[in-house]
Design a protein around this nucleic acid. Structure first.
Lengths: 205, 205, 205, 205
DNA sequence: AATGAATGAGAGTTCATTCAT
DNA sequence: TATGAATGAACTCTCATTCAT
């Protein structure tokens, strides 16, 4: 039986994806070279092609790997029975945690996916759009339940959350010292409450 | 007199910077090639080197061009006598407007400046840090005047504003149909008031 | 074992050095192009970079190869117990023979080494200076033993021998028909006895 | 009348030749660029083409300039009524002095003339060959008069003198501190008397 | 007499990719 | 499963040369 062999292959392929993620994150897709990736895995350049049939496939795999969990989490959050605020908190937590766990892959997804050919990009786009739509629905529900202001544009809101999370995600990847949980907490707080001191106010706007 | 000649040079060089900005924004620094830049200007590849002594110098000039106004505006805003909310609104307006005016250069500054050699990067870093510090001060002042919540971390807040603006900036550059003023308004509103319906509340958190 | 592989690499690298020597000798460092070198080896231009990391490294290797033996021979001659005349003859023989064996590499060392960056050039300079010093010592010893005229400036003498040998070396490289041994003999004779008819002397030849 | 203009042109063209000589001597023909030459003259690159119709013409002119006097001198020496020794001394003097006066042009003639196209090179070759032949005749005459050893190969001898002079010429150009007259004297002495102590002879130069 | 601007050809170098072993 | 060797295309950059002004 080839089970052991197959397992090793799978393991090595995962290693290749992580290596590619790291290198792409650091130098960008075009700035990176296959030799760098191979070296990070401890193999030679040519051997990389045992795991990827092209550099582009490597990018594609990294991107997929980068959003997999994060998309899955949203599925869970979206299906759960929680208050708006809890769902938003869960979203931010999931999103920012991904940057730490999945390491650089999520960053690569954000910054480099546009270098994929349309064909491959559309699959990712679907996943991304789906994510955003679910987030939008959370806002819609929030409105219905009265937790979110009527005036809020839910499409805008979803983009804003994603944008803010990605911006902080970049900083998280770049600076491993950063305290993840404090960032999560502060982001959530900002998004929910805004900057200003709320005083018995009827919100203009 | 050679004034006309010098003027032509300056004009062409500006054109080169804009062309480079557009190409770098679209393909990234390493993904772009000098031929693309030259062609966009209507000259031949080799002629580009009459205006830049290297591709890297082109990047450097684009980055500088990208933040010039935006840093200058912050100087004005920071020195002005306005309420916290007005200053924040002005900042968001300036930042997002830059993305339209300065076109792709600002995006390039954000995404590609890390490919510059340390020496050139540090000059940009200074400018960027200065910007962030001034924004932090606006938050500090906001706290003192009671407009901003005591609990707010001003460093975090400044990063968050910049991050949010850059995230939307990306979308603005990518989608020229986007209504700039609505985005500005919504971002400002979100940052100030947060998502939730404020009800005669004493803010927990 | 990878011994065979390593051997092949070494062999090919030697071939690359010889090819580079030939091309540099014919066209000069700047006049030569890497394509010529590759073609002479029967490989394609890009493949050359598997053996050299730059054109300059090729030059550097050629120069080193060019003087290696010749410097080694001088070591032997200098350490031997022979008359002045025998040592001088051995020097001329070694020097001129090198031009035939090492082919064009020695010519390249003479004419093109100045295009190397200071760092690499200094290593060669050392070797060259050492050679000249040993030759000077041969003259000093010749004086002591009475074989060389008291009035002779040993530094000048060494330079003169080297200069004369290099001048003939050029001709030897350029004209493969030239009878090496006759040139060696005549050079030695000229250097030892000069042009003029020596009266009352036991000059054979 | 345009006399003044014509004069200026001639003067500038001479300056161009000298500038080209200097740059070619330093960097070699292929290593030099027309911008360097122009800058050394204090004009702009394009303006150089007012004086030369190509870089190659510049080389050609430099080479011609480099050997003109030196060939002329040999004409004089060859036609004069002097002893062999005096003629040889005059030859060495003329040759080595040329290196100082004509500066780098002679070196360029020696090292770079092979980059000229056959057509132009043959004119120079003629001059060079003529020079060598006249030198050979001096040796032939020397033999007849008994001043030169019967065993001497006159063709070899002429080559050797030229080779030695060029080798020292290189050093003279490279090191402006070098005492020209001492070098001339020593070279002549070496060529005439050789290295060895001549017994029972009154020769001491 | 000189220049600024542009060009086009060619150079060195990098790198994704292939393939026999 | 992995590698060494090679390839060819693409890219950055240089430079002799031209020409209108």
């Amino acid at each position: 039986m080839h089970k052991a062999g197959a397992e090793k292959y799978t393991r090595q392929r995962q290693a290749a994806i992580r290596a590619a993620a790291a290198v792409f994150a650091e130098k960008g897709f075009h700035g990176a070279c296959t030799k760098d990736i191979a070296e990070r895995m401890g193999i030679k350049q040519g051997s990389l092609y045992y795991y990827f049939k092209s550099k582009q496939e490597a990018l594609s795999e990294v991107c997929l790997f980068g959003i997999q969990d994060y998309v899955q989490h949203m599925e869970d959050i979206s299906g759960s029975e929680q208050s708006f605020e809890a769902k938003l908190a869960a979203t931010v937590t999931s999103h920012l945690s991904s940057y730490r766990e999945r390491n650089e892959a999520l960053k690569v997804y954000n910054d480099e996916r546009l270098y994929l050919p349309e064909a491959k990009r559309s699959r990712l786009k679907e996943l991304g759009s789906h994510y955003r739509q679910q987030l939008e629905e959370i806002f819609e529900d929030g409105k219905k339940s009265g937790a979110v202001r009527e005036s809020m544009d839910c499409h805008f809101a979803a983009q804003a959350v994603i944008g803010m999370c990605n911006a902080w995600g970049d900083l998280i990847v770049r600076d491993p010292e950063l305290d993840l949980f404090r960032v999560i907490h502060k982001c959530t707080d900002l998004l929910i409450n805004g900057f200003i001191q709320q005083t018995n106010t009827t919100n203009r706007n």
